[in-house]
């Protein structure tokens, strides 16, 4: 089974959102980077499926050249090869992102390597457009099931589980298929040191697609009000307990 997982590099923002002067990006000079927990679970799911059924996991990202770091992290988590669609750092809108991912899938297919399963996060961590996976599925004419908390492959079909009020909804779809997953579908393993070393040797192919004009055009970012309160200190250590109970009484929860 050949599986593709799509991941997006995003900053680890910590306790505060700080914008650049032009208000078009987060100030990331002092930040580390990661991928969405949903996508981390996507990589783990793909690796588990290949461990079970055999095959190969490819991980793809569209982002600045530095996004090779997130590809290598995914390779350390067990993926076999990487594809980096390098940009100049400017964000691509979801339609353009889907277009670039689609072109890569089609090129792979033309070269004789089609994917049986394509895994996305339910939504990207930063822009949260809830759509790239669905767009790619439509362009390929393949079924797509979103927001999965459970996924297994039986007899060439994907059994997909969604958490809904009161239980789980089950979908059964034939392969090849597209799925989008949520954190909690599995518990990703921590990459071992040897796995990290092996990841350095795994192949990563890079290309530089052309960015189309965005049709969902970001104008500027705004930090919502509410950031930067100052908590009232009720006390230090266990001696503060009576003051806390007093507050709980006032709030009617004690």
């Amino acid at each position: 089974m050949r599986i593709l997982v799509c991941v997006k590099r995003v900053p680890l923002t910590g306790g505060r959102m700080v914008l650049t002067a032009d208000e078009r990006a987060l100030e990331t000079r002092h930040l580390g980077f990661t991928i969405s927990p949903h996508e981390e679970c996507g990589v783990e799911q793909a690796v588990q499926l290949v461990e079970q059924h055999g095959g190969e996991v490819t991980v793809l990202t569209l982002g600045p050249p530095e996004a090779e770091e997130q590809v290598r992290d995914s390779l350390a988590a067990g993926a076999d090869r990487g594809i980096l669609l390098a940009t100049d750092g400017e964000e691509w809108d979801p339609q353009a992102t889907a277009g670039a991912i689609l072109a890569t899938i089609e090129a792979e297919r033309a070269a004789g390597g089609d994917f049986d399963l394509i895994i996305f996060g339910n939504e990207s961590a930063d822009s949260g457009n809830f759509q790239v996976g669905i767009r790619v599925a439509h362009a390929l004419g393949r079924p797509v099931v979103t927001g999965l908390k459970g996924l297994s492959i039986e007899d060439g079909r994907a059994r997909c589980e969604q958490e809904v009020t009161g239980g789980r909804d089950i979908y059964l779809v034939p392969l090849p298929a597209v799925v989008t997953v949520l954190e909690g579908i599995n518990l990703p393993r921590y990459p071992s040191v040897p796995a990290k070393l092996r990841a350095r040797q795994k192949p990563v192919e890079t290309s530089t697609p052309e960015r189309p004009e965005p049709r969902l055009e970001m104008v500027r970012l705004v930090v919502p009000p509410g950031q930067g309160k100052q908590a009232e200190i009720l006390g230090r250590g266990p001696e503060a307990a009576p003051a806390v109970v007093e507050v709980m009484r006032e709030l009617g929860v004690a």
């Binding site: 959102m17 987060l26 949260g128 969902l216 055009e217 500027r220 970012l221 930090v223 919502p224």
Partner: peptide, 15 residues
């Protein structure tokens, strides 16, 4: 909404 509500974005929809 971006980042699950921690950030907002003004955007134009061309369509």
């Amino acid at each position: 909404v971006r980042w699950g509500g921690s950030l907002l974005e003004e955007a134009r929809i061309h369509g």
